[in-house]
Amino acid sequence: MSYFFQQLVNGLSDGMIYAGMALALVVVFHGSGVLNIAQGEMATFSAFLAWAASSAHLPWPVVIIGVVVLSFVLGVGVERVFIRPVERASELNSLIVTLAVLLLTEAIIGSIWGFLPRSVPSPFGDGATHVGGVTITYQQIGAAATLAALLVLLYGFFQRTPVGIRMRAATDNAESARLLGVRVGWMLALGWGLAAAMGGVVGILAAPQFGLDDSIFLNVMLYAFAAATLGGLTSMPGAVIGGLLIGVTQTMSSAYVSFIGSDLNVVVPFALILAVLLIRPAGLLGRETAGRV
């Protein structure tokens, strides 16, 4: 039984990383209708910044706050500089632009820090606690607590603050929002900033878990896209549930189904998504939308 719970803990802790990135994707997609392929690479950049800062022996709180603020600013900057010029063009254009941002970011990371993987210390230390035969590392506990706090903050921001409500209004009906005086363009940029800041936090949390190199988020982003799709692309709770579900199915399937092992486990989440989307095309918590022709 403790084996089962150990797998569950491991699955959830991977799943939280997917959930965090899926959440960032949803914030951008829901706001501006752009699927930001570069989200993972931007988070990688933030993780490298954090690693560089912590290597310079800056205290962790300073590192985290600094990286979050910087990531936010970079996210807003990316939207203003790269996305805004193609905002009115077709969605394919913005998709290609985010691909360009991905390649650019990767090149920048490579030219500053090289392409060798690095091991990164956890902000929460290396210890672990044992609960009835199940090992839970401080890193896992810390990451879970941080992501949960992030989720609550984000939810409160969108539900309770005037700016959050304006952002939702801009998403919901951009024209009406403009007619009320909401600066819709800036609301979208703010969404990009929030997503990048969130990605930065997830990057800091993921680096100790997966090891840091320029492609750390390559696989993670596949699962994050999958998680966002599973949850319905516009639903934040959906993205989180999707992420956790994918993390758990992945670990469980490789732990209990011998022929899947660690090679085929990449396939399992996608089989799950296929199944869900066949039954609920709008995703778990997504809303049915009719396509405009």
Partner: peptide, 9 residues
């Protein structure tokens, strides 16, 4: 016209 309320809010 068509009211333009924010339907999700």
């Amino acid at each position: 016209a068509g009211r333009g309320t924010f339907s999700d809010l």
